[in-house]
Amino acid sequence: MAVDATQPYDDQNIFAKILHGEIRSRKVFEDEHTLVFHDIAPWAPTHLLVIPKGAYVSWDDFSEKASDAEIASFVRVTGKVAREAGLVESGYRLIANTGLDSHAEVPHLHVHILAGRQLGPMLVRNDSRR
């Protein structure tokens, strides 16, 4: 089920439950503002999720309301985790879905870090733009 990014934050979403310690995760990194953990249903050999600890529904919500410290942590931790996992040389993909058209599934901002194999094209090209 896709998430409407204009809806208020749902503090019962799965990532909120992970942050509150109600659901366990395989943690990779944590600081004051950001948590990184392994996805339970990986799409690639390396599939990590980076989430801010604040209650943000989407990238838009986060970029508008988060503190500078939260934003810096989120961005820097994403790069740090990719470097420390050895993903830079072979490459990796970052995905952040927002809203119904993107098929976002969890109403908490998160970035997927995918790596470890050829990932293929992101989208099928729409020839109507020609």
Rank of each mutant, 00 (worst) to 15 (best):
V81N: 05
N97E: 03
R83T: 08
L87W: 06
T98Q: 15
L109G: 12
A85W: 08
F74I: 05
A96K: 04
T78W: 02
A82L: 02
L87Q: 06
T78V: 01
V106M: 04
S73K: 03
Q118P: 08
V111M: 11
G79F: 08
G116H: 09
H110T: 05
G99T: 03
E105S: 15
L119H: 02
G86A: 08
V77K: 00
L119I: 03
G120N: 10
E89R: 13
S73C: 02
A96P: 01
R83K: 11
V106C: 01
I95Q: 06
S90I: 01
A72G: 11
T98N: 15
D101E: 15
H112K: 11
S73L: 01
R83M: 02
G79S: 07
V111L: 15
Q118A: 15
T78D: 02
L87D: 13
A82V: 00
G79D: 12
T78M: 03
R76F: 13
A85C: 09
N97P: 06
A115C: 10
I95V: 15
V77D: 00
N97T: 01
A85V: 04
V88N: 07
V111A: 11
V106E: 01
S90T: 10
L87E: 10
K80P: 00
H112R: 10
G116P: 12
G120C: 11
L87H: 07
I113G: 07
A85E: 15
I95A: 13
H112L: 06
N97S: 10
G91T: 08
L94K: 09
R117I: 01
H103K: 15
L100D: 02
A82G: 04
A85K: 15
S102P: 03
S90Q: 13
H110V: 08
V88A: 13
N97L: 04
E89P: 01
V75M: 15
H112E: 07
I95R: 05
H103L: 14
L119Y: 02
S90V: 03
V81S: 04
H103Q: 14
D101H: 11
H110L: 06
D101L: 14
P107V: 08
V88W: 11
L119D: 02
G120K: 12
A104E: 10
V88M: 08
T98G: 08
A104P: 00
L100N: 04
E105L: 15
P121A: 13
K80M: 06
R93S: 07
L114F: 08
L109D: 11
P107A: 13
G91F: 09
H110R: 06
P107I: 09
G120W: 08
H110G: 09
A104M: 12
G99C: 05
A115W: 07
H103Y: 10
V111Y: 02
E105Y: 12
A104W: 00
G86D: 14
A72P: 00
A85T: 12
P121D: 04
F74H: 10
I113T: 07
V111H: 01
K80Q: 12
L100I: 11
E89Y: 05
A115D: 12
G91E: 08
V75Q: 13
V111Q: 04
P121S: 11
V111K: 02
V88Q: 11
R83E: 10
A96E: 14
G79C: 05
G91A: 12
D101K: 13
G120I: 05
V75T: 14
D101N: 14
D101Y: 11
T98I: 12
R117P: 03
G79I: 02
A115H: 06
V75R: 07
A115S: 14
